Amino acid sequence: MPEKFPSPAGWTPPGAQFRSSGNVSRTVAGTLTGLLITPVGIALAARGAAGTRQWTILGDFADRVGSTIQILLAAALFLVVAALAAYSPAGTIVAGLVWGVLPGIIHFIFPDDTFRLIGDLPLSDEMHVALYQWLQTGFPLIVGILLVGAGAAATFRRR
């Protein structure tokens, strides 16, 4: 249907120069959220995995409920970061690269150095062991690749 009154060439509505799509603030907020939530999920997953290892050692005396809850909370946090791709794909991609892919690759190339670096973190000895063993299994790399994939899928879906 043709317009009754076509706009003159080069005309824009008043205030159009101040209108933005909000992509920059959305990207920054999404990236910061992903960078903050992902390490909490990693810590919970590592701690829960260390707790499940005690099941085989201590049997019925192990804290099965606590470790299971930690693993479920970690999975929920990773789900939140993956779902964050619907809001800001860059946030999910950056979180996956920073907290998963890069540490995983660095560990495979320099395993002794990653053990030393984890030991330098201001954490308890139990948490040092839990983080190193979780890194040693390759799960940060797997989780990182999945988060990068979720962000990439959201990016391609938008186009």
Rank of each mutant, 00 (worst) to 15 (best):
R53F: 03
I69H: 01
G59E: 04
S25L: 13
L35Q: 11
A75N: 06
Q17A: 14
P39D: 05
G96Q: 11
I106Y: 15
I42P: 03
I57D: 12
T31W: 01
G22V: 11
D120T: 08
A85W: 08
L72V: 15
I118N: 00
L121W: 07
F108D: 09
I105A: 14
W11N: 02
G15S: 13
Q17T: 07
G104W: 07
I57G: 02
I42W: 12
G59P: 06
W99K: 05
F18V: 12
V81H: 03
S20C: 06
D120C: 08
S88D: 11
L102E: 03
V24T: 11
R19T: 10
V28H: 13
G51T: 08
V94P: 04
T33C: 09
R19V: 11
I71M: 06
V98D: 10
G30E: 12
A45E: 00
F18P: 02
P39T: 00
R53Y: 03
L58E: 02
R64F: 15
P89E: 09
I118K: 00
V80E: 02
L58D: 14
I93C: 06
G96M: 05
A50D: 04
L36E: 03
R64A: 13
L77E: 04
R53P: 00
P8F: 11
I37S: 02
P89S: 06
P111Y: 06
W99D: 01
N23D: 10
V98F: 15
I105G: 05
F18A: 15
A62C: 08
V65D: 08
G100I: 15
T27I: 07
L77T: 02
S20H: 15
D113K: 03
P103K: 04
A46H: 07
S20T: 15
G119P: 01
A83N: 10
A29D: 06
T31E: 04
I109F: 08
I57Q: 09
I71E: 04
G15A: 10
R64Q: 10
F61N: 12
G119T: 05
I69L: 13
L35A: 11
A82N: 12
A45K: 00
L102G: 03
G104S: 07
P103D: 14
